[in-house]
Amino acid sequence: MGVVDDAEQPGFITTTLDKLLRWGRSRSMWPVNAGIACCSLEMMTTGAARYDFDRFGIMFRSSPRQADVMIVPGPITKKMAPIVQRVYNQMAEPRWVIAMGSCAISGGTFVDSYNVLPGAETILPVDIYIPGCPPRPEALLYGCLQLKKLISETSTIGSSRKPMYVPPVLPEEWPLELLGEYDALEAGAVWVQPERDSPPVTPLGDAESAPEDEL
C-alpha cells in the first residue's frame, strides 16, 4: 500500500483489491447468532459489555444471509445436524467456521453418545478450534483474533468459492439435504480446502502465533 503524495490531489492511496478485501473482511467478521448449547452463554458474555465483541467489528447477525462466520458453540446432535448445515449453506461467501468448546471439537463428553456428532468437523469445514469447557471469553476473543489473522492472510478472489459443503461420507442415519441446483454436488464428493497462506491455527498455541496487535 502506498500513499500518493500529490499536493494538488490529496487523499489517494494505492493497493490491490485483494488486500483491500482482506483488510475489510478481517475487520468486520459477522458471526451468525446461532447458540446451539451451553457454550453459547459464554458467547453471549463475550458479546456483552465487559468483553465487548463489537470493538473488533464482530457483530452478531440474526440472519445467516448477513453473516460470514459461524461459531459452533456446543455439541451438534444428529437431529440438529441438518439445521446447522442448512444455516451454514445459507451464509454469505466466503465463510468461516469456529468450533467453540470440547463438544464442537470432538464431541467432548458426549463423544460416544448415540445422538451427538463427534465434532463439528463431521459436517462443517472448521477453521479455528477453541478448546475449553466452556472456553473463557478471553479464549473466544483470542480465537476470533486468530481467525481475523487467518482471514487477512487468505486470498478470497478467484477460485476460493466454497459451494455447499458435502462431508466425505454422507450419513444415512441423519440425511443432509441438498438445497437446489447450485448446491447439488455429487453425493460423497470430497470438499477441497482452498489454499491458504497459513494453515489453520488453534488458540493457546505457541506464542509466535499470537496476534501482534489489538489485545
Partner: peptide
C-alpha cells in the same frame, strides 16, 4: 420426539449397545 425420524434405535433399552468409536 428426541431422535431424528430416520433413527432406528431405542437407546435406553438394556439390549442397546453403543457403536464402537471409529477414531
Amino acid at each position: 420426539i428426541l431422535q431424528p425420524d430416520s433413527s432406528t434405535i431405542h437407546p435406553l433399552r438394556r439390549s442397546f449397545e453403543l457403536e464402537e468409536r471409529t477414531w
